[in-house]
């Protein structure tokens, strides 16, 4: 399958990753090769085969509604690249 540069740009925007022109070109080619390889899957007969999204036959994993201590304020903001008062700071969101 041909992977156009626009497709890579679209996907990179969804994933919020900036790519330079060189990366963009290189990745188009590489993703095309990888997807060609993956296209082998098209040969598999998957009619009536259920998908496996969880490998263990588990269900209904629940916890009791019992409060547990939260993190200390210091621990919460310790790793923050930008903090103001008790908040995390980000560049202004324009709505």
């Amino acid at each position: 399958m041909e992977i156009k540069k626009e497709t890579v740009e679209y996907v990179a925007n969804l994933a919020r990753i900036e790519l330079n022109q060189k990366e963009l070109e290189k990745l188009s080619g590489q993703l095309e090769d990888i997807l060609d390889f993956i296209d082998a899957l098209k040969k598999v007969d998957i009619k009536d085969i259920p998908p496996t999204s969880h490998i263990l036959p588990m269900n209904n994993v629940l916890r009791e509604d019992t409060p547990r201590p939260s993190l200390s304020h210091q621990a919460v903001l310790k790793n923050a690249p930008c903090a103001k008062g008790n908040f995390f700071g980000v560049p202004k969101v324009i709505e």
């Binding site: 916890r63 409060p67 547990r68 939260s70 993190l71 304020h73 908040f87």
Partner: peptide
């Protein structure tokens, strides 16, 4: 999905965990 309190109106970022 965690044991943090759902109480309303407390100091920002005090009812949080990993």
């Amino acid at each position: 999905f965690c044991g943090c309190s759902t109480e309303f109106g407390n100091t920002p970022n005090t009812q949080v965990c990993p």
